[in-house]
Write a protein that binds this DNA or RNA. Structure first.
Lengths: 149, 149
DNA sequence: TATTGTTATACTCTATAACTATA
DNA sequence: TATAGTTATAGAGTATAACAATA
């Protein structure tokens, strides 16, 4: 056999999503490597910069991961002094997450690099096609939630 | 803080792709559970049904995974008697993978179920929007390869 | 009682090096 | 020497149960 047919799998949108997402993910990982960030540490840092004072449980919620899995991510960002665990007033159980100056500066640089790399990935799509893509992805993301309304 | 802003991340197509893909992946896993299949065992089974006699190295290539990681997948499908490892004539190193009757029947049922579930995910998209989505995903998947031409 | 963060644990997916048997 | 399949191993991401401190 010299040629492998994926005719059946090709009919599924999920198949194309997995393949495209793998490319995006690999490229993002490569883009973030110079900053010593991964997708998860990057997402967490961006969200903390944008939402100073947020709690870990809120961050886990926003990132769609379980609380225990966030602990090591926050540990890593804190160890590198990109964020700090401040105390929430009137609730000594929780931490108020805040980016340091160093953290928000690294975040800005990383965002610039990610923007440039994403532009390369989307170079074949015009503005309309990009808008339609995001719209379609949002509809898919919320399709099952809408079912239960 | 009562509201978390993801304004920065929302600007990235990759962010929307991750979220949409997570939904698709979770739904697919749930859909395949009654058949005792995972995404990887499902993809492998479909490809073997469509390409009887293919070798493991070809299958790993088609699935975009490393050869060692395919071994347990094939082991599992073989143990459940959904496929067999036949011998390739004139090359005693390689196996010719073939689905059993039981395997191709399970595959047909699984495909039907996946088709139905995917229809639910895409219910908000008309035919045009679906075609545009697949086109966009294919362009993203091949964007970096085209760069190097 | 319930919640926040944490520890421990386990399972899946992925990646690499090294082995065996064949070619 | 090169290739097909295998073994062993390690890392990342994810999920659950259970705990201490606090509400």
């Amino acid at each position: 056999m010299t040629h492998v047919s994926d005719a059946t799998l090709r009919k599924f949108v999920g198949y194309h999503m997995k393949r495209a997402f793998n490319v995006v993910q690999a490229d993002l990982a490569k883009t973030l490597k110079p900053f010593d960030l991964r997708m998860l540490t990057y997402s967490a840092l961006v969200l903390i910069v944008d939402n100073p004072g947020m709690r870990q449980s809120q961050l886990a919620d926003a990132m769609d991961i379980e609380r225990p899995n966030l602990v090591m991510i926050i540990d890593e960002l804190e160890r590198r002094e990109l964020i700090v665990r401040d105390r929430v007033p009137n609730d000594r159980r929780a931490y108020a997450l805040k980016a340091t100056l160093q953290g928000s500066q690294l975040c800005d640089q990383a965002i610039k690099s990610v923007v440039a790399h994403e532009e390369q990935l989307l170079v074949a799509l015009d503005d309309d096609a990009r808008a339609n893509l995001v719209t379609a992805l949002k509809l898919i993301e919320t399709s099952l939630k809408r079912d239960t309304l």
